[in-house]
Design a binder for these strands. Structure first.
Length: 459
RNA sequence: GAGGUAGUAGCUCAGUUGGUUAGAGCGCCAGUUUGUGGCACUGGAGGUCGUGGGUUCGAGACCCAUUUAUCUCCCCA
């Protein structure tokens, strides 16, 4: 028998880790609920057709596909063999796989909206916190199974929604106390405008993926990549000029000069969003900022309007984006429901966890589970102890009893290692006088007290 | 999908140009003592050296494959 293991890129989570993750989840859930979002869940698997073609070629490659059952049935052999040939040549075939693990939460949500459209009240605000799977090569901050926390609003074009989502990002990272949070914002329309500006709209995808890498490979790298994609010298110079603009007004002037309407629409979107956000925002935020970044592109192909991405700029962490999102004007159109615009953001909670762990941002208090443990001295004392245990739990105090009357040493060590703050000692004397002895008060040693006092002190 | 680095006890790691029964610290178990927590002392358990092949008289060490982790590219949360 070989050693047991888990699949590549997937992990067991220890009690300490789960508690910390739950701290993040509950922080986000509180904000979502406060902002009027409703929770939904969708299945781990979707029909393959629901997912394919939604995330670009690279995304398709990373979808975990599930092999059909019953392929060994003789009657299906011919079909299965034919299907395998299809798969070998790079196509999908429902005779081999018809289901896949979900790749993100947005596409399943779009599918959900279409299927439940007649029972939903629009604008519909939902949040969803579930794992997603990607067949990517694991790296730092990159897992094959990870959780996303999404909130989306569908059925409204208002930029108030964009502003609210910016609020949610900043409020969340404020409550979690993640330092140096940068929320970068751009509009796909600005990117289209840039492509139109230099007369290369048909190369929009090439241009956006190239300039998305600006901070990584620099202007020279971008030029090189765009040259390979067949852009002329003049087009290149125009792009380099535009992507070095950091200022809304300046970009607006550039678009005006050539009457690039799409680009000007994008600028207006950004202006309005920021104006709403200024009113909505909180003056107590001291750990985050919003930055216009005309080179922000984001990979997912379905975005059409404002896009955002969040990073932690603290030098001590080297982490990719910890959240992202944007507006998609016709996502439900893919499933037959036209003219429904949506906008949403996603929190990458595994990465947020890694950042918080590295920066030691988790409060001590969340590590505590059991508050008090009763030392077991056996005999009649056990029943007396169980009665007290019952009373503590009724009062909402998390308590345990050591299940065996082994020696004090061992029990005390267990209590210490479990990080349980209070130990309750019950021997004959305590039982006979209806009291307990308690350790765990700083600078107080052991205290003898009655049950009511015990409950009062621990509550 | 391409490449680099790594894998020895539950954990952190030693292991000299390949050479007897593979070690340490911590942890764990038993005991002693303090007759009620991290101390001290004594003893003990636990490893087919990631897995599978190969080279060799002999492999933890060298070679190949495979698997997992980690990093870079690609892409992303």
């Amino acid at each position: 028998m070989s050693k047991p293991s888990v699949p590549q890129g997937m992990r067991d989570l220890t009690p300490e880790v789960v508690r910390r993750r739950q701290y993040i989840f509950s922080t986000l859930r509180n904000i979502f609920e406060q902002c009027g979002f409703q929770p939904i869940e969708t299945p781990s698997m979707e029909n393959l057709g629901t997912l394919m073609g939604k995330y670009g070629d690279e995304g398709d490659r990373l979808i975990f596909k599930v092999l059909n059952n019953g392929l060994n049935e003789a009657a299906k052999h011919d079909k299965t063999r034919a299907a395998l040939e299809n798969v070998l040549s790079g196509r999908n075939d429902a005779n081999l796989t018809e289901r896949a693990l979900r790749y993100d939460l947005t596409i399943p949500f779009a599918r959900y909206v279409v299927m439940h459209q007649h029972e939903l009240q629009f604008p519909f605000r939902r949040y969803q916190m579930q794992p997603v799977w990607r067949a990517d090569r694991p790296q730092k901050g990159r897992y094959r199974e990870f959780w996303q926390c999404d909130c989306d609003i569908v059925g409204t074009n208002s930029l108030i929604n964009e502003a609210e989502l910016l609020y949610i990002y900043r409020e969340a990272f404020y409550r979690l106390q993640v330092p140096q949070v940068i929320v970068r914002i751009n509009s796909r329309k600005v990117l289209t405008g840039i492509a139109q500006f230099c007369g290369a709209e048909e190369k929009l995808v090439d241009i956006t993926t190239a300039i998305d890498k600006l901070d990584k490979i620099g202007s020279e790298g971008v030029s090189k990549e765009l040259q390979q994609r067949g852009l002329t010298e003049e087009q290149l110079n125009n792009i380099l000029r535009l992507i070095n603009i950091r200022d809304l007004a300046e970009m607006e002037a550039a678009f005006s000069e050539k009457e690039i309407h799409t680009g000007l629409d994008g600028i207006k979107e950004l202006k309005d969003t920021l104006a709403y956000h200024d009113t909505l925002g909180s003056s107590t935020w001291n750990n985050s900022e919003i930055k216009i970044d005309f080179t922000l592109a984001r990979g997912l192909s379905y975005y059409t309007g404002v896009i955002v991405e969040v990073n932690c700029a603290d030098e001590r962490v080297q982490m990719g984006s910890i959240g992202g999102g944007g507006r998609y004007d016709d996502l439900t159109g893919l499933f037959g429901l036209k003219n429904l615009s949506g906008v949403g953001v996603s929190f990458g909670i595994d990465r947020i966890y890694d950042v918080m762990e590295q920066l030691e941002l988790f409060p001590e208090s969340i590590a505590v589970g059991t508050k008090a443990m009763i030392v077991n001295t056996g005999g009649a004392n056990e029943h007396y102890a169980l009665g007290i245990l019952q009373q503590l739990r009724t009062k909402g105090i998390a308590a345990e009893i050591y299940p065996e009357p082994v020696k004090f040493d061992k029990q005390m060590k267990y209590i210490f290692n479990r990080n349980i703050p209070f130990s309750i000692i019950i021997e004959n004397e305590e039982r006979e006088t209806n009291t307990v002895r308690v350790k765990g008060f700083p600078e107080a040693g052991q205290l003898r007290m009655g049950i009511d006092e015990l409950i009062e002190k621990l509550a």
